[in-house]
Design a binder for these strands. Structure first.
Length: 562
RNA sequence: GGGCCCAUGGCUUAGCCUGGAUAGAGCGGCCGGCUUCGGACCGGCAGGUCGGGGGUUCGAAUCCUCCUGGGCUCACCA
């Protein structure tokens, strides 16, 4: 029985109005549905309080209790069969329904440059990508993960040149340095050398430019150096991806795709989509879209940044024939993607319509923006290492008699939980300040809090010897609140997948945990009355399953013990 | 200068799309709670002109508008 519809149709016949709707009160003391009577006040020439009380006098529906609280009509559904239905559903393991159309989605993340290690921006990128991948799969979409490596250009040559000048034949192995960090060290050295003097800077930049020209000309020596350093970087990234649980199905490389982009542009120019400007460069006119004019090929015929993105999309469509593509890229590239998608349209590529730029805000440090050239960046690997250490200390402090392997395993899960949750709980659109000293905690609205709640429930479930539930003892306010909350899990996951907002799931999980922990402090689960115990165990078990499914989407291990 | 985005207690933030009943929460501060299921927890207190003005509305943190402050962007860089 759909009480909402029934109540609405009663209201409509009673008042002669149409198109009325109910709202869901925030405060549970206000029941399950509410009708604000202000709307009728003008028409009926009566105070809304009076209208509410008159309507409540005339109301009579099975299983629905009505109360006029001020100008509101509040309805409470006494029949909890729907919630019990949901509860049984969850208990049977049917936690998330695949309600989405079974489309193929491509997700691009994290798009690194191969001249330095991954920093916190990439971390945010990866975690957003991973959680979205999980959420989309959970609701029934097919997701393929791809990546783009920006492995060509002047920034790459800077690291290469510095290595040539100061490298002295050293290798990551000889220095015992993670290979991408080793490469990044030379990017910093380049900047340091440039800082010596203006002359030195000009000299070095010219040399880097020469190197780039040689690279494009296919100079064997330069290419060999490029290959060596690129491979170091990529190998380092792989380690970090693995640690963060990111699997990439197909890697694309700018160095391999930029040439093909030219042909597409040239063909487009032939077809009259683009034109040659007065300097001989090929341009797209996007003035009518408010995007200005965009150069697609330089007058010397070489490609620009966007050229390779055009070809890459084309290649990906050949590889995956996706229905949707989501680019997870920072908000500083919003203009770039507006232009890119417009170009897809001009080229008549139908998939262009379903491309989305998942734009996220930057991460700043308390002392300001991160600048890799200046060295005030926090690397992903360094952060993980630090938090691993903190988590290990936290576990050791509480459970000193655990064996080393178990201690490490828990510490690692907790560390991952803390990092992931912290980076996902904020609205992705917003910039946030990362304060290394204060930001990462294992208490309050954190991943470990959710993990702890899960472990706590698990512990109770292990101890209980209750039989089968009858679902007749879940009538306390706290029972109802929890049941109601569990019923919203599905729509939270759907919303996260549609709106690309993992933060919505984080907020939800926190709320469930808070409600459970409060429940825990008021209601004893394990007890003499085994019928009551069985029902509460059923409820807890459902909470546990929802927490676990939610954590899995975020990529966090739901611990049985911690 | 044009475009896009952001502004909520000391700090970090939810709510804004789809307007409603005392603006939720975490951290920090203060007070209290482990001889029943895990204190990485729970209960309570203090702390808010929801950046500012104007408008729409019975009603605005939420919608519209102007302004202020901040970020990003508008390369034949990537």
């Amino acid at each position: 029985m759909d009480y909402e519809k029934t109540i609405i149709s009663w209201l409509e016949t009673e008042t002669g109005e149409t198109g009325l709707s109910l709202e869901m009160p925030k405060d549970t003391a206000h029941g399950d549905y509410a009708f604000p009577c202000f709307i009728l006040a003008k028409k009926l020439q009566k105070a809304p309080q009076i209208i509410a009380s008159e309507l409540s006098d005339r109301f009579s529906l099975e299983q629905v209790q009505v109360a006029a609280i001020g100008p509101y009509l509040n309805f409470t559904i006494l029949d909890n069969s729907k919630q019990i239905e949901t509860l049984k559903h969850i208990l049977s393991g049917n936690i998330i329904q695949k309600t989405a159309e079974p489309k193929v989605v491509l997700i691009e993340s994290p798009g690194p440059n191969t001249n330095k290690p991954l920093h916190l921006g990439h971390l945010r990128n990866m975690l957003l990508g991973i959680s979205l991948t999980h959420a989309l799969r959970a609701i029934g979409k097919t997701v393929h993960t791809v990546n783009v490596n920006n492995d060509r250009g002047i920034h790459i040559c800077k690291s290469m040149l510095a290595y040539q000048l100061f490298g002295d034949g050293k290798t990551p192995q000889s220095e015992g340095r993670k290979s991408d960090h080793f490469v990044g060290d030379y990017y910093v050295k380049f900047a340091q050398a440039c800082a010596e003097s203006e002359e030195r800077k000009t000299e070095l930049e010219n040399q880097a430019q020469e190197m780039l020209t040689k690279w494009e000309a296919g100079d064997q020596e330069v290419l060999a150096l490029w290959k060596k350093m690129n491979d170091w970087c990529l190998a380092g990234f792989q380690e970090t991806y693995k640690r963060m649980g990111l699997t990439i199905e197909k890697e694309y490389f700018e160095s391999e795709t930029y040439q093909g982009g030219k042909d597409i542009i040239l063909k487009g120019a032939e077809d009259g989509l683009f034109y040659k400007n007065e300097k001989g460069a090929i341009e797209a006119d996007l003035e009518d879209k408010g995007l200005g004019k965009k150069v697609l090929l330089r007058s010397d015929g070489t490609s620009v940044y966007i050229t390779q993105d055009i070809n890459m999309a084309h290649l990906r469509y050949q590889d995956f024939s996706f229905d949707e593509m989501i680019y997870i890229v920072g908000n500083e590239q919003e203009y770039h993607f507006k232009v890119l998608f417009e170009l897809f349209r001009m080229l008549g590529w139908s998939f262009g319509e379903s491309c989305r730029h998942f734009s996220y805000g930057m991460i700043e440090l308390p002392e300001g923006k991160m600048k890799s050239r200046e060295g005030n960046v926090i690397d992903t690997d360094d952060l993980i290492k630090t938090v691993d250490g903190l988590a290990y200390e936290a576990v050791k402090e509480r459970y000193e008699d655990l064996d080393e392997a178990e201690m490490n395993e828990r510490a690692r899960a907790i560390s991952t939980g803390a990092i992931r949750f912290f980076f996902l709980k904020f609205d992705p659109l917003k910039n946030f300040v990362f304060n290394p000293k204060e930001s990462l905690s294992f208490e309050g609205e954190t991943g470990p809090y959710v993990q702890y709640t899960h472990a706590r429930i698990s512990s109770i479930l292990r101890k209980s010897d209750a039989g089968n539930p009858t679902f007749t003892h879940l009538n306390a306010d706290e029972d109802k609140q929890l049941l109601k909350q569990l019923g919203e899990f599905q729509s939270v996951v759907e919303r996260m997948a549609e709106e690309l907002r993992p933060s919505a799931l984080c907020q939800y999980l926190i709320k469930v945990c808070q409600q459970f922990n409060s429940y825990y402090s008021k209601h004893q689960v394990i007890q003499e009355d085994k019928d009551v115990e069985a029902d509460r165990v059923a409820l807890l078990s459902a909470v546990q399953k929802v927490l676990k499914a939610g954590l899995e989407i975020l990529g966090i291990t739901a611990l049985e013990r911690m």
